[in-house]
Design a protein around this nucleic acid. Structure first.
Length: 171
DNA sequence: AGGATGATGAAG
DNA sequence: TTCATCATCCTA
């Protein structure tokens, strides 16, 4: 999977973060060491993946918002549905999670170790990464913490939720 | 434009 | 033990 879009979440100082109200059983891995996977389940049907980035004890996470399936295409198609276009296999956080087959059981996995899921670094030219407001979040959405590869077709194009609009409108 | 669908956390 | 909320996607 080539990741094309992420969204950053700070810990207890970020109202949009799951860790905003302190440590709970669900968000515990966000407080753990970096390079680990934090999976959450939402809207009754979607598993979304995050990479813990900050030092241990300081909650943080980067939501994997979109990606291009470059390996295991067959598996991804099976999980997402055979009629889904390749471009849509992992374009969007929920879709990405489904393409990878993420479940709550995967939360806490070490992405830098020898496990089945690993995170490797890539490189892009200077200026290839664009920045903007976060999507789908109802609080503090104006913080420009969404990062994506400019002009990449494997980037989600969902609109900000009506909630987010209201929140950012009212001063 | 709205429905699906369930874990989570706060309140009672 | 309820209840509202939700870092979404799909069908219409």
């Amino acid at each position: 999977m080539r990741v094309t879009e992420v969204e950053a979440y700070a810990g207890e100082r970020d109202p949009a973060s799951h860790a905003f109200r302190g440590r709970t059983p669900r968000n515990a891995v966000m407080f753990g060491p970096p390079g680990h996977l934090y999976v959450y389940f939402t809207y009754g049907m979607h598993h979304c993946g995050n990479v813990v980035c900050g030092p241990e004890g300081m909650a943080s996470g980067a939501l994997l918002r979109s990606g291009e399936v470059v390996d295991g295409l067959e598996v991804a198609r099976r999980r997402r549905g055979e009629r889904v276009r390749d471009r849509d296999l992992a374009r969007g956080p929920g879709r990405l999670g489904q393409a990878l087959g993420l479940t709550l059981a995967d939360s806490g996995a070490d992405l830098l170790g020898a496990g089945p899921a690993r995170l490797v670094l890539g490189a892009y030219p200077v200026g290839a990464v664009a920045t903007g407001p976060r999507v789908g979040v109802s609080r503090a959405a104006d913080v420009p913490w969404r990062f994506w590869i400019r002009d990449d077709q494997y980037v989600s194009s969902y609109q900000r939720s009506p909630r987010a609009e209201r929140r950012s409108a009212e001063k």
